[in-house]
Every structure is written in structure tokens, then in C-alpha cells.
Nucleic acid binder design. Structure first.
Lengths: 87, 87, 87, 87
DNA sequence: TCGCCTGATAGTTGCC
DNA sequence: GGCAACTATCAGGCGA
């Protein structure tokens, strides 16, 4: 692997740098997102609920319903817990 | 602070050791929890939904309803998104 | 799953209760920790620095493990290369 | 909030759309990263080790910052002690 | 390919 | 009331 006299090393360096560049861009987008949520919050919206909205829009409807159905089954199975949860 | 000839140092050491012991116990309980979820999973339950159940039982009912209400307001505000989410 | 006449429900309940018990114990330990820090603070120590000390001691331990992990990664990589070369 | 006849709704929609756009870009960068690793792998490198390299380079950077933070903590602690002694 | 497990991200809580 | 640390959840990568 090192027997190619540094040829591979140059490739490796190139890969690493591409990776680090991409990760930096990703990080920057994360900052932007944080910024948008902060801005929305200062406008009076609730980031936590906004995240829920985004998550729901992203989530496949069938999948979401399936999960809700399973949750209901579990709560039903717990009997009085359901009552406690719903009271 | 160090001028008391190590008296405080002894106290500090005692505090640090109590802390580390408590943290170790906490960590161990975390392991136990993971274990229980794994066992439940192997029995056919869905850990993710179980966590939801635990969260709901813990969460104050009023608070939960409030959050759901706000979510609905947001989805309503988005109009056709609601339709997409509910379809 | 619910068609077994509550058999699974009993299991589910048992799991949930074990989980809630463990989480309660964890929470209690968290309280204890807070208590210790408060006590130390009232004795004149600085919680922030104590936390740093604990963190550093943990890191010292973790670092050794990190080194071992790194070594393993490199050995594994070498092993794979050997294997690749030997294929 | 919804009583303003959709004014806030328009804002909400704008925020949500900005968020979804940013998340899409982030996701795309994630794809790119995966691509680069795959390409490197097909060139004969070991993704696992490459990730380790990237991680270590990141840590080298972070470590310097960590040291500076620690120094500040200690200086702060000393300052507080001085203040406490001077009170 | 599936399950596990670690690393990344979001939420909560305590501190200032 | 905002900020920072910590915790819990989730997704992606790795190994079997």
C-alpha cells in the first residue's frame, strides 16, 4: 500500500480534503438552519413545534399512521394507563 | 485555597470520588435500561414505540394537549400541507 | 399481538414498569449529584472547575481506550489489506 | 396568532420552506460524502481508517481549543478565589 | 442484507 | 430570560 512511493498518499490527501470540504459545508448549513429557527422564534413561532411540522411533512403518511396505530395498541394494552394518559 | 496545607484538597478529593461513584451508578442504570429495551425487542415489542409510551405516561397531560393543539394550528396555517399530511 | 388475550399486554406492562423504575433511580442519582455539587459549592469549591476535573479524569481513562481503538483500527486495516493482497 | 388572517401563516410557510431547502442541501452533501468514501474505497483505501484520519485531524483542531477553554476555566477559578479572598 | 452500535442531532434542564 | 451542559433520540456505517 505504501510501496507505490507516495502515489497513493497523494490520492489519499485529495480524498481527505474533499471530505473535509464537504463536511465544512454541511456544518455551515447546520448553522444556517439554527439561524432560521432562531429567527422564527424571535418572530413568535415555536421551534420545537416547527420541527414537528417539518418531520411530519417529511414522514411518509402510511408510516406515520402505522406508528400511531401501534402506539394506540400499546396504550390500550396498558389499560388504566390509557385512562391516566387520556384523563 | 491551597494555603490550608491540603485540608481542602482532602475535601475536594472526597467530593470528586463521591461524584465519580454516583456517575458510575448512573451509567450502570443506563446499561440496564438498554438491556431491558433489548429484551423487550427480542420479545417482539418495538422499543421506539415503548419509548413513546414511557414519554407519554411521564408527560403532563395538559402540556401534551397544548403542544398537540399548537401543532394543529401550525399545520392548519400551512393549508394544503395539512391535506398532504392527512391524506 | 393483542389477540393473545392480554398475555403480551402483561409482558408489556412488566417491561414498562421496569423501565420506569430504572429511570426513576437514574433521576434520583442525578439529584444526588446535584446535591453533592451544591454541598461542595457551599464548602467553597467551584462546581464548574470540579466538573472540569471529573471530565479530565474521565478523558484520561477514555484516552487510553481511544488509543487502543485506534491501534485496532489500524491493525484491522492492515489485516484487510493483507487479505486483499492475498485474495 | 392565526387570527391575523394568514399573515403569520405566510411567515410560517416561508420559514418552513427555507428549512426544508436547507435540509435538502444538507442531505445532498451527505450523499456526496458517501460518494467520495465509496470512490476512495474502490481506489483501494479503507473508509474506516479514512474516517479515523478525518476524526483525528478534527480533534487536533478541537484539542487546541479545548486547552484554551481549560486554561480559561482555571484562570476564572483563580480569579473567583482571589475575589473570594478579597471580599 | 440485517441487526448492532457508534456518532450526530434535538430537547431538556440548570446556571448566570 | 438567555446560554451552556447534559441527556435522550435517531440515523448511518460496520460487521456477521
Amino acid at each position: 500500500m505504501a510501496a507505490d512511493g507516495g502515489f497513493a498518499a497523494g490520492h489519499l490527501r485529495a480524498f481527505i480534503e474533499r471530505i473535509e470540504r464537504l463536511e465544512e459545508e454541511k456544518r455551515a448549513l447546520g448553522e444556517d438552519l439554527k439561524q432560521v429557527y432562531a429567527e422564527a422564534k424571535s418572530t413568535g413561532f415555536t421551534p420545537k413545534v416547527m420541527r414537528q411540522v417539518v418531520r411530519l411533512r417529511k414522514m411518509d403518511t402510511a408510516e406515520r399512521q402505522e406508528q400511531e396505530a401501534l402506539l394506540r395498541v400499546y396504550l390500550d394494552a396498558l389499560g388504566e394507563s390509557v385512562a391516566a394518559a387520556a384523563e
